[in-house]
Amino acid sequence: MRIAVCMKAVVDSQARIELDGDGNLRQDQLRFEVNEYDLYAVEEAIRLAESDEGHVTVISAGTADAVQGLRKGLAMGAADAIHVDCDPDDLDASGVAAVLAAALHDGGYDLVLAGVESDDLGGSQVGVLLAEALGYASTTLVVGTNEPVDGAMQVRRELEGGEHANVQVQFPAVLTIQSGINEPRYPSLKGIMAAKRKDLAVKGLADLGFDGAPARRVESLGLTIPPPRELARMLEGGAEETAAELVRILREEEKAL
């Protein structure tokens, strides 16, 4: 089985988020990390490949910040990597899907896995758009996979309130992977060393047949800092005092106990 996994470098959760005078995100203070959902996707791909001597390729579209994620994917056990070198600020979700599809379309993949969404922009659409661009089937919010049978796989989709749907998906297919499906492994030292020797191909948009970035379907009208919300009434003092005050308020003022 040949599996590709899409990875994204997202703005680090601890990074300082500030706007410059023109309302643009200040780039100088940004740090990047691998999108957490994508690590679940990499882990699932490696497990599926291990069971049938498959091949896992990790792919990321972005600037040089994308490379650290790909290296991590390789260190976890992927066989090779593709870095589509581009500025993600030039692309909307449909553009990202188009460039990923161009890089993957002749790879003969049975499955493409992606995280359900990105931690920073939360678009939750590239996976399915990619499936459509490749002409693959798709299903989303996957929390369980099964061994493939006759070119199809039964997967478990997470719905709301503890409900799940069991869905049969024909290959080739894109699955978006939800957190909790597995426990992503930490790369071993051996894995990290091996990753340095693995193939990491770099492709520009021109190499993929694009004359500039694909046309946008969604345009940005700007970023703003949301007005601060009113804070809770904070109870001060030691644990004994705050606990007693809380119980008094809930009983006497709110009559909630």
Binding site: V116, G122, S124, L129, E132, A133, E160, R217
Partner: peptide
């Protein structure tokens, strides 16, 4: 809805109608 239905179906509709999609 930005729920399992919309997260699955909205990008399919967007792709097949050549439409832009805003989520959540």
């Amino acid at each position: 809805p930005h729920a399992p239905l919309g997260r699955d179906l909205a990008p399919l509709l967007a792709a097949r109608l050549d439409a832009g999609l805003l989520t959540d």
